[in-house]
Amino acid sequence: MTSWTGAGTDLAISVVPVFVFLVLLVFLDSYKLIPMRQTLRSIAVGCGVAVLCVGVHALGFRLSGGARRYYGGLGIPLIEESLKGAYVFWMTRTGRVGFMVDGAIAGFALGAGFSLIENIYYLRIIEGGTLLVWLLRGCGTAMMHGGTTAIVGILAAHFASRRGGAGAPALIPGLAVAVVIHSVYNFSPLSPPYSAALILALLPGVMALVFRSSERSLEEWLREGFDADIEMLDTIAKGGLAETHAGRYLESLRRSFTPEVVADMFCLIQLSLELAVRAKGDLLRREAGFESPPDPEVKRKIDEMEYLRRNIGRAGLLALEPLVAGSARDIWQLRLLGYQ
């Protein structure tokens, strides 16, 4: 009974710092754009990745033979960060993460889940570990795991926000930084207490910078995007689309598509703009502190959008890409309204 209590205390010490930090990040996010169930799912995925890594590393150590030290210092960071980063990247690519703050929270949650399982594993293999060992695992290794995956999420969200930037290259810079940090941590010439102190000193500052920059970026995107979308809708309403670049492009598509499909393309552009304005209106509401209850009108427009997309077909949608849903953030804002 006593050993169970002791193990529980050790585990708590080794994971409490990372989960407290995660709660702080969620609390500090003023727009609250990541739903709680998505954060919990990220934690669960982190747990799954850690279980997978236990098996992969057992095999990796067996195969690495005399190069075990290098597998520990380079192979482990590369494998763990790639597997953790893959999920964060998928979230960005599918519009579940729109801004750096969302990427930071999703990534940190995943890293927290990872460290939970990793510490349960170490609880079984480190016998007689002192309080200091678990404290260092909690404040050092666990925070490092949360921090590196948060960096992957932050940079993936940053690069994916550019038009056409949601592809694999959006993952590479964050992944490279995460692998280097993880590797340096594993090979660190500093003693573990100093490494943990360094992580604890740097991480809050980095996160504060990311939060400030992300909120500024969101405000800027909101302001500029809203006004541009409204201007375009106004142009359409006044029948002036043909004079714009978008109108001329749409006109050129008449050579390749039937008139019915081109008409649906026009409707899709208008509907996408209306939904984009609506999503930004919801964000303005949230920013001011108002609720955003579900609206049947939005549901109807999303259904109509689905119908139009089916009618236009894959080739037509590809041709329309320069005008509709060009970046991961465009998909993200539709997801904000419940679009799957």
């Binding site: 302001r223 920013e287 001011a288 502190g289 108002f290």
Partner: peptide, 18 residues
């Protein structure tokens, strides 16, 4: 009325509501 106008109106409305 631009997005900044909407934001200002929302902020004042929220302040009064609160």
């Amino acid at each position: 009325c631009s997005s900044m106008g909407l934001r200002s109106i929302l902020i004042i409305a929220k302040r009064l509501q609160a």
